[in-house]
């Protein structure tokens, strides 16, 4: 499985949960904590994130940065 991770800008997250339903790996959940605006923000709750960017695409607040493991060099070259 390709590895990935996300960073959520918890200050601007509004806890809409749209990223949670967009995530095929089911690795996002609302925090028990609130941000300054009073919203429960989203957290990554497992290391099974694949960096597919689905959550970031639907995030209204553009609050998610996504990271993914680079393709192995050999495979990437074979493709060219």
């Amino acid at each position: 499985m390709i590895r990935g991770t996300i960073k959520v800008d918890t200050k601007i997250c509004k806890g809409c949960e749209l990223c949670i339903i967009a995530c095929p790996q089911d690795v996002l959940a609302l925090s028990v904590n609130f941000n300054e605006k009073g919203y429960r923000y989203v957290e990554l709750i497992s290391s099974a994130c694949t960096g597919c960017i689905n959550c970031a695409l639907v995030c209204p607040e553009a609050a998610i940065t996504v990271y993914r493991e680079p393709k192995p060099v050999k495979k990437a070259q074979a493709k060219v």
Binding site: L57, V58, T65, V66, Y67
Partner: peptide, 26 residues
């Protein structure tokens, strides 16, 4: 892991006033 997606730099830093989950923001 490398960054593959981030907030577009053509957006300002101003947080949206839209309601949570509104399509306008997307």
């Amino acid at each position: 892991v490398e960054q593959v997606y981030r907030r577009p730099e053509t957006l300002t830093d101003v947080p949206y006033h839209y309601c949570p989950g509104c399509s306008h923001s997307v």
